[in-house]
């Protein structure tokens, strides 16, 4: 019974997860039999040297990469067993992505960029507008909705990207070095938003970072080294 409750409270359950790249005769082990639980509402930060497997772990949890061994359950679903198309739907409904390089579509306005994931839902135009505006206001950019990415600062672009990640109301937000390309003030703003999400909006946030100051915004930090957890 107790273990059942534990599982329910864990949004992510990882068991013996491995990722091995085969390059000719050489095997590169990006992740080596990792086991990890992440509780709902946590703001988990992932630290470790370059090449230690941080991005790989994040990608597998978020359903854009596949492990070569082990299990990864997210909200009770073993994402490693979904096919391409199921996984796409699952990502749309359950995961929000924030990238180091923002990755907004340059020809779309802030509003349209945020609206993009909603084109895959059944929401009508009015419902979409409500969701988009709510998300943009949450990141403090309600007044910038008609700007194109190039008309925004880096920090503003990243906040638009966070709004895009939130607009489908996913329970999980993953961010791979979201402050890597930002000045310290913008980084501070972005980290503040992510922190608020986990504390008040009940989102689980998983963030990869190099920066101990950034990691300090999280509720827990884990360290990876050569594909293994070192805590």
């Amino acid at each position: 019974m107790l273990s059942q409750v534990m599982v329910e409270a864990n949004i992510v359950t990882i068991r013996k997860l491995s990722k091995v790249y085969q390059q000719g005769d050489i095997n590169v082990t990006a992740l080596n039999q990792i086991s990890l639980d992440i509780r709902a509402g946590e703001f988990l930060t992932l630290m470790g040297p370059s090449g230690s497997g941080k991005s790989t772990l994040l990608h597998i949890i978020a359903g854009i990469d596949r492990p070569t061994g082990g299990e990864c359950h997210v909200q009770g679903v073993d994402v490693t067993r979904l096919n391409e198309s199921e996984l796409a739907d699952w990502r749309n409904q359950n995961v929000g992505f924030v990238f180091q390089t923002f990755n907004l579509i340059p020809v779309l306005t802030a509003y349209e960029n945020v609206e993009l994931p909603l084109l895959l839902t059944r929401l009508n135009r009015q419902q979409r507008r409500h969701q988009v505006n709510t998300a943009l206001e949450l990141v403090g950019l309600g007044d910038r909705s008609h700007h194109l990415p190039r008309q925004l600062s880096g920090g503003q672009e990243q906040r638009v990207a966070i709004a895009r990640a939130l607009v489908t109301s996913p329970s999980l937000v993953v961010a791979d070095e979201p402050t890597g390309n930002l000045d310290s003030q913008s980084a501070h703003d972005v980290l503040g938003i992510l922190q608020t999400l986990s504390q008040t909006a009940d989102k689980t946030v998983i963030m990869v970072t190099h920066d101990p100051k950034a990691a300090a915004f999280g509720s827990r930090t884990i360290h990876l080294e050569k594909g293994e957890l070192t805590n």
Binding site: I64, S85, A88, D89, R91, N92, I105
Partner: peptide
């Protein structure tokens, strides 16, 4: 290419 990868991450399927 990168943008198309982002669209995939956001949940767009291959056929879309």
């Amino acid at each position: 290419f990168r943008e198309l990868a982002v669209l995939k991450a956001l949940g767009f399927r291959r056929r879309e």
